[in-house]
Write a protein that binds this DNA or RNA. Structure first.
Lengths: 111, 111
DNA sequence: GTCTACATATAGAGAGCCTACATGTAGGCT
DNA sequence: AGCCTACATGTAGGCTCTCTATATGTAGAC
């Protein structure tokens, strides 16, 4: 998967995996891999800054927890985050439709 | 349309509009708008550098022409460009599938 | 003389994804 | 004790691409 392709869609992915339940960063990375059947291996250097960005813009809220001696920062969707997720889904549908229609192979003179 | 979303898909779009026939930059921008029903307004500052990049990597070849007193640089797909286009289409299908499956709304406990 | 459409090109800004590194706990193996 | 892997978070810096703004020039309408 070309890393550049992810640009501008990362927020949508993160918001989406947090829709069902709150998760911490490491678990989010695993969830992304599972949901994509292994296709998405998003590095920590991408996910952690992105989560902080989403918290800063009010889409996520976080709390620290300690489980088995390890510190976790658990993120959950805020109301604004749910609205943003809906907007991102809508934007994705439009985007995919537009790119898909431009990319559609030319049927040629016969078609 | 969020500009960042286009990242990594611009090459595919350019290659795709050049599949049917060779075009010059300005006409490519118009073709992109037509094929997307107005959704894609790609600025010249994006298209011209991208075309040169694709020429440099061997996907496109260009020739100068003068039509009605105006100079045009007409780009056409090379064999490598056609192969690249096929690869880009395949990559897009995979990408759209992956993002779509992650973004798919959670059916919830009842589903 | 001015405006718009046509046509190409470059410089610099901005943003975000990635690599690499830094830090630390828990638990298994030797 | 020492080493390794999994778990867990975080930052610095690089890279690349898209965008904005600007520059240049022709043709034709008004």
């Amino acid at each position: 998967m070309n890393p550049d392709a992810l640009r501008g869609h990362m927020d949508a992915l993160l918001l989406s995996v947090l829709e069902r339940e709150p998760l911490h960063g490491y678990a989010i990375i695993e969830a992304l891999q599972e949901r994509s059947e292994g296709a998405l291996s998003v590095p920590t250097g991408t996910v952690y800054p992105a989560l902080r960005r989403l918290e800063r813009t009010g889409c996520l809220a976080s709390e620290w927890a300690t489980v088995g001696g390890r510190r976790r920062r658990t993120y959950r969707l805020t109301d604004a985050g749910r609205k943003q997720l809906a907007a991102e889904r809508s934007a994705w549908r439009e985007f995919a439709g537009v790119i898909g229609s431009v990319l559609r192979p030319d049927p040629g003179p016969a078609g």
